[in-house]
Amino acid sequence: MTSGNPRIYIPHTNGELTQLLRRHPDARIYAGGTGLLYPDGVRRLTLPPVLIALYGVEDLRRIARTDQHLDVGANATIRAISRVAHNVVPQLLTDTLPHIVPPGLRNLATLVGNVCTLERVMTSVPTLIALGAIVEIRRAGGGRWIPVARFHGGSTEAPLAPGEVVTRLRIPLDRYDVQLFRKTEDTRLTMAAIASGSKRTIENVRIVIGSSAATVLRNRELEAELAGRKAPLGRREINQAAERMRFAARAADPTFTSFDLYRIAGFVTTFLYRVGR
């Protein structure tokens, strides 16, 4: 990091952006800058040696909706998304957006910047994984789509190769019967869950727990077992599911405290209790 003579590039098109990244594969991307720049005393913020800012690319601010999904450009701010999101996106995302950054940063911070921060599991991540969101990654001469889960799924492989940039986030606009989001006051846990079904049968359940220690927890075995069961679930079934999630959490991340495990089990209980009721 340097505040000496940083090189700052401000492209105006996606083409310029990917060409710049080809020439400077190790450049850091600046979206809203609220997670990238750290204080260097009261006077300045530390800038990386080479920085490519996205705010000049009009296309990356775009938020577009079809019947199936919402496409969010990499430079669309949390505030801009909140404005269009109301009554459009699944309630889970509407409930998550106000918790991502303090209000004075919402006109700067982006949702894609939140996903691309890899040091810990950021607030939007469990929600976006539960909703099955995917991101578009571009580089000079090509592109690909990958699930958000790949960014925070515990894979040792870095989701972005040098010279790559995320340009879009795609959020499916599926309907769910039950959606629940919780961020604990101490910010140690962010939890998101969805369920859908028909004729009193559970068809689809996703429960995603994110911890400040960069763990994303999902118990797919449990989710598969819950699918196909009659709703509402009985108290015993709910308690068993909550216990299994608690055990899975303990096994996945030894930094979970007993209070964290208690809160995870509580979240699962509250969520499953609502299914079918």
Binding site: G33, L45, P103, G104, L105, N107
Partner: peptide, 21 residues
């Protein structure tokens, strides 16, 4: 970027100016 005492209108939008380079 947490307290809001440095608030300005930046391009017409409320922004905490301590976090803007």
């Amino acid at each position: 970027g947490r307290c809001g005492s440095c608030l300005v209108l930046f391009e017409g939008l409320i922004v905490n100016s301590c976090i803007v380079p």
